[in-house]
């Protein structure tokens, strides 16, 4: 994709939803994948955090020769150091996931970076189609597989949606051998976070269906009526056309056929 674009992918430590174990974050992995597609080997992958974290080897195993680490304590604020880094790196496209899988996972980081760098931000990108003449054509992911096309001027920050191309397999060997460039940066403590109380997620109460019956008879009915369901309707003896009509009515009712 000429001319050469300087792409930076920001990665964080993910969290497996079932085991809670560290992993390559789903969206960040896609950000690296998209970055590799755009700029092949010249992609810069940056992590702000612990350089010893073994999960970084999983990112490196996607075929990165090196990975840049801006060392940070767990309670550090990644924003200022990333702003400094991006300013000095002459990045043109910065890719991240929409939300981190660990920490606050607020999804604010890309917005704050964009604000401080004065760059535009494209949210929930599914694909970057072209980059030419200082602008990129980007496809945004909308719900249910829909897409929107947007043109954005360089440099910009994009958050990568789950609809983007899946991250390639991570290979053990290259990951093990990749070179980690650990930069010397000052870390800034995230003061606000220290005042928070963090606990394991409580299950959210399910919203109950409140019966708004105005009369005694209605309330009686609501209390004694059998729950709907328990085996659907089965059509056996009707004609094929009638059966098809029944199906089609259901499709219309559910608004999947419009």
């Amino acid at each position: 994709m000429p001319p050469k674009v300087n792409v930076v992918s920001l990665v964080s430590i993910g969290r497996h939803p079932q085991s809670g174990r560290s992993r390559r974050a789903e969206q960040d992995g896609r950000a690296v994948e998209l970055g590799l597609k755009l700029s092949k080997k010249s992609l810069t992958v940056v992590h702000a955090g612990d350089a010893q974290e073994p999960v970084l080897r999983q990112y490196a195993g996607m075929g990165l020769d090196s990975l840049t680490v801006l060392p940070q304590p767990a309670d550090g604020d990644a924003l200022p150091i990333l702003v400094d880094f991006l300013k000095s790196s002459k990045a043109q496209v910065v890719l991240t996931g929409v939300r981190a899988e660990s920490g606050e996972s607020s999804g604010m980081l890309p917005y704050l970076l964009a604000e401080q760098l004065g760059w535009p931000l494209v949210p929930r990108v599914a694909e970057i189609l072209t980059i030419k003449q200082g602008a990129a054509e980007v496809l945004l992911a909308l719900p249910r597989g829909q897409r929107r096309s947007v043109i954005v001027s360089l440099p910009f920050i994009a958050t990568v949606d789950n609809a983007a191309a899946e991250a390639r397999q991570t290979a053990f060997g290259p990951g093990l051998r990749a070179d980690f460039k650990v930069l010397d940066v000052n870390s800034v403590k995230d003061e606000a976070m220290a005042t928070w109380q963090i606990s394991a997620a409580k299950p959210r109460p399910k919203r109950l269906k409140v019966v708004k019956a105005k009369t005694a008879a209605d309330r009686m009915k609501a209390a004694t009526a059998k729950p709907v369901g328990g085996g659907g309707k089965v059509m056996k003896n009707e004609t094929a056309a009638e059966k098809a009509q029944a199906i089609f009515d259901l499709l219309l009712e559910e608004k999947v056929v419009r």
Binding site: H16, S19, R21, R23, R24, T170, P174
Partner: peptide, 26 residues
């Protein structure tokens, strides 16, 4: 698998699951 990361089809996902959850189906 270890050098190229080219386990076909569901292979990559299964291996990722095994690493992250100690079972192939995650």
């Amino acid at each position: 698998t270890l050098e190229k990361g080219e386990t076909p089809n569901k292979g990559a996902q299964v291996l990722e699951n095994i690493i992250a959850t100690d079972n192939p189906n995650g």
